[in-house]
Design a protein around this nucleic acid. Structure first.
Length: 513
DNA sequence: TAACGAATAT
DNA sequence: TATATTCGTT
């Protein structure tokens, strides 16, 4: 079909002049449509209308068909046959929802109840626009091209958007909004991708290899990188920094480490894509030291021995994909600091700890424990009494059981509500759940400031421990409940133990296995 | 030079 | 506060 230049240019008065195929006996409908400046062609017979549509679909933009109450099936036949050619609006006096549904199900773009009002009719053009933009991409029928062009020009004015054939624009304001947002997002993405390599170059020197290895795909234990505020990003030199730093926005992201095996629920990947992975960008990767991850960390430290535990070795043992030595070093630093808070470096405490360890080993032999696979762990228990230097402030971390939400991710959640346990101090044995937990560290321990014990007492404790290796450490702990003792004993395949020594074992070596 | 670890920055 | 980054030291 040949169109004049005028045809192909903007349809200034759109939707006036919309060509409507009307299949309705009532003259009233026609006049209403014409009053809205639509060009109406009326048919009284379905087959007639259908043949007209089939013959030259370009002659119409939209069809309005009344449901033939005396012969519904005829209407539906027409609808089915013509829906692909023209957007078809069904109209009826029938207010039955079933009729409406049937019409829509059969392909009607809308169902309007009679009587038709200008309100109802004024928006029918939307279906035409929808078809123009959503049907067949570039192969829009000739009659719809002017519609499309017209709408495109209007959208361009409003939104300054570029619309091309490959990316059909939505026809409603709402969709345009969505489209605009998507468009912006895409633009951001591409900017990011463009910048990424450059920024990488700039920052590469420090963590070569390591930072590049961050990979959040599902490896063994992998990392989900959340990106920190770009502000943290170090630019090349102090000179030209501040400019685009803000651009990063506040995507307070961090890194999560997931076990690949079973953790089906991975709520973390909020980035809805691999943006974080692929474009490591100039953002700093923040490791989320979840309980799980920290546990691995402690196990590695445990395995190496606290003195031999260095970042690189810990990293090796942890086998967590994406974790860097720097991450580990940082965490180790914190770990040590917390230990130090509990374990002042004066001789008394060293001796005390050492003696605890000795005691534990001796006790293990004594009890015939065969757990050589489990390395020795000399980490102190949080808040252990007597380990603070006189006058020292007891450790403030972790905070004295604040609301759970404030706890660190790995915060140990003991089965005993009063137990303020924490994995920082504990050796992290594999079976954390459903087995044995240290006796509730309540009462004297948690309510009395640790620094009540002075050095003299510590010395005394040390001597006592050394001299009586078989005896429990005077930790000031309450004895465990009989249940927990029995549970633990049975877990260790110890069937019968003198009742006195049972509590000694547990008391003397909480969490030490 | 790479790794460590304390200090410092974010 | 937690974690990252820097920087002097080994």
């Amino acid at each position: 079909m040949v169109f004049t230049a005028n045809d192909l240019s903007k349809w200034e008065s759109f939707p006036k002049g919309l060509r409507v195929l009307l299949l309705d006996s009532a003259a009233e409908t026609r006049s209403k449509l014409e009053s809205m400046d639509y060009i109406v062609t009326t048919f009284s017979d379905e087959s007639e209308a259908l043949s007209a549509v089939v013959k030259s679909p370009e002659s119409f933009h939209i069809a309005i068909v009344e449901v033939n109450t005396s012969a519904e099936d005829e209407s539906f036949k027409y609808l089915e046959a013509a829906k692909g050619l023209l957007p078809t609006i069904m109209i009826s006096d029938d207010h039955c929802i079933a009729t409406t549904m049937k019409c829509i199900a059969l392909g009607a773009v809308e169902f309007l109840q009679k009587p038709l009002s200008p309100e109802k009719l004024k928006n029918i053009w939307q279906h035409v626009v929808h078809k123009a933009f959503n049907d067949g991409g570039a192969s829009v029928s000739e009659s719809l091209k002017p519609v499309k062009d017209s709408v495109v020009s209007m959208i361009n004015i409003d939104t300054n958007m570029t619309i091309d054939e490959k990316d059909p624009a939505p026809s409603t304001p709402q969709l345009r909004q969505v489209s605009r947002l998507l468009d912006q997002e895409n633009r951001n993405c591409s900017v990011e991708n463009v910048n990424s390599p450059t920024e990488k170059e700039n920052t590469e020197d420090h963590d070569i290899g390591e930072s590049k290895s961050v990979d959040t795909t599902n490896h063994e234990d992998n990392v989900i990188v959340k990106e920190e505020n770009g502000d943290g990003e170090k630019e090349e030199e102090q000179g030209q920094t501040e400019e685009h730093k803000q651009e990063e926005g506040e995507t307070g992201d961090s890194v999560n480490f997931n076990k690949k095996e079973d953790e089906t629920n991975k709520p973390i990947n909020k980035s809805s894509g691999n943006k974080n992975l692929s474009s490591n960008k100039a953002s700093r990767k923040k490791v989320d030291w979840t309980q799980e991850l920290h546990k691995k960390f402690v196990q590695a430290v445990e395995q190496l021995g606290v003195d031999q535990a260095i970042p690189s070795r810990i990293l090796e043992l942890m086998k967590v994909d994406g974790l860097t030595r720097h991450n580990v070093a940082s965490h180790l630093q914190k770990f040590r600091m917390h230990r130090r808070n509990i374990l002042p470096k004066d001789d008394h405490n060293h001796r005390w700890i050492q003696s605890r360890e000795n005691h534990r080993q001796i006790q293990r032999q004594y009890n015939g424990f065969q757990q050589q696979h489990r390395p020795v762990m000399a980490y102190p228990v949080w808040g252990l009494p007597g380990v603070h230097p006189p006058g020292a402030v007891p450790p403030l971390w972790p905070p004295a059981l604040p609301s759970a939400g404030q706890l660190p991710p790995w915060h140990f959640k003991p089965p005993y509500p009063t137990l303020n346990g924490n994995t920082w101090g504990y050796p992290v044995g594999p079976p954390v759940t459903g087995t044995f937990f240290p006796p509730p560290i309540t009462g004297t321990f948690s309510t009395h400031p640790a620094n009540q014990l002075d050095e003299e007492m510590i010395d005394q404790v040390v001597k006592e421990v050394i001299s009586k290796p078989g005896m429990p450490l005077p930790l000031g702990l309450k004895p465990p409940s009989p249940e927990s003792v029995l549970t633990e004993l049975s877990r260790q395949d110890i069937s019968a133990v003198p009742s006195s020594s049972a509590s000694c074992q547990i008391n003397g070596s909480p969490r030490l296995r």
